[in-house]
Simulated scan of single mutants.
Amino acid sequence: MSGNVLLVEDDDAIAQLTKMYLEAEGYQVSVISDGSQALDMIKRTQPDLIILDLMLPGKSGVDICRETREFYQGMIIILTASEDEMSEVSLLKLGADDYMTKPIRGHILVARIEALLRRYHFGNHSQPTSVFNDAYGIVINGENHTAYYQQKPLELTQSEFEILQVLIEHAGTTVSREHCCQVARGIEYCSNNRSIDMRVSSLRKKLIQAEVFSAAIKTVRNQGYKLVGSQA
């Protein structure tokens, strides 16, 4: 698999080793070390995937990730110095599709990238559905990946939108955890993987915060999730 990767990393040794490893695997890699240059570079090059360090000069990786998600639909992998630097939930809320802790192991990084790009290309080339779908007062636009309730936009990450979209498309019926993993970019299905549960939990909180009281996401034990009306 190949693609264009933008690596935003201020540690020269890590950046060069990562670049050499990915190029050996067939990827085209651009490297920048100053966070203040990242947004312009992303807008200009529109990479297939961004590898983004959290601690950067000029602008932090947190701010870059958050602002990038306002215009960028591709994949973002966050690099953290330790698992305690930011929780997985916090990173997902920022809009990251995956994260890795340093030191980076090349073969693991390549495997993560390949998984993310498979999700991305699967989503882009899957059979298109109706642009607009709605259930229980929630309306989604599949073309520009936006969701609304009572004409007010819902502030969702890409993965949250994708989960909501599949729940709306199957409103009233149970969607398996495996299916949710397949549509939520960056999650490889595993029965013990709680990433999908955290994303669903975050989506529930977003709906409550937006005062969406006409619908609820119900957990169906040992099966998956179901979008139901508030009276169901």
Rank of each mutant, 00 (worst) to 15 (best):
K226T: 09
L116W: 02
S36N: 06
P47H: 01
L56N: 03
P128V: 00
E88P: 13
G123S: 12
I51M: 01
I108K: 07
E114P: 00
Q158L: 15
I76W: 03
Q182D: 13
M75V: 14
I187T: 03
Y21T: 15
I51C: 02
A15Q: 03
S214R: 07
L167Y: 03
F122S: 15
V212L: 08
G58N: 07
G142C: 06
I14F: 05
S126K: 06
F132V: 10
L6F: 06
A81D: 09
A147F: 05
T68W: 04
L79T: 03
I51R: 00
E88T: 09
Y120C: 09
V110E: 10
P103W: 02
R199P: 00
H121K: 14
H179K: 14
V183H: 04
Q37N: 13
H121N: 14
G142Q: 05
V183W: 05
V139K: 04
C65N: 06
Q182W: 10
V131E: 09
S159A: 14
Y21S: 13
R204N: 15
C180L: 08
L54F: 00
L109A: 04
S195W: 11
R66H: 08
I78G: 05
R44D: 10
Y120V: 01
S60P: 11
Q150W: 05
R69L: 02
I14A: 11
V183T: 10
A81M: 06
I113L: 09
I51Y: 00
G74Y: 07
A184W: 13
N4E: 10
I217A: 01
T129S: 07
I163A: 14
I108S: 06
A215H: 05
R66T: 10
G172H: 09
K205V: 07
L154T: 10
I64Q: 02
R221N: 10
V8I: 15
Q182H: 13
I108H: 02
D97K: 04
N124A: 13
I187K: 05
M20F: 14
A216M: 14
G58D: 09
V8H: 01
E25Q: 09
Y148N: 07
N192Q: 12
N4H: 13
D84K: 11
Y149N: 11
R66K: 12
T18W: 12
V200W: 00
H170N: 15
S130T: 06
Q28H: 13
H125Q: 12
Q73C: 06
L17T: 10
S30M: 14
E67R: 02
M75R: 15
I196S: 15
R119I: 05
S191I: 01
S191D: 12
A96Y: 09
R112L: 04
P103A: 04
A111Q: 13
I168N: 05
T101V: 04
L164A: 04
Q16D: 11
L109W: 12
D12M: 06
Q182C: 08
H170M: 14
Q165N: 15
A210C: 11
A81L: 04
Q28C: 12
D40W: 10
I14G: 06
L52G: 02
A81Y: 05
E143Y: 02
G137Q: 03
I64L: 00
I217W: 01
Q151E: 07
T129L: 08
D98K: 03
H107R: 14
I113G: 03
L92H: 12
I51G: 00
E160C: 03
I42L: 03
R204S: 12
R44K: 11
E83I: 06
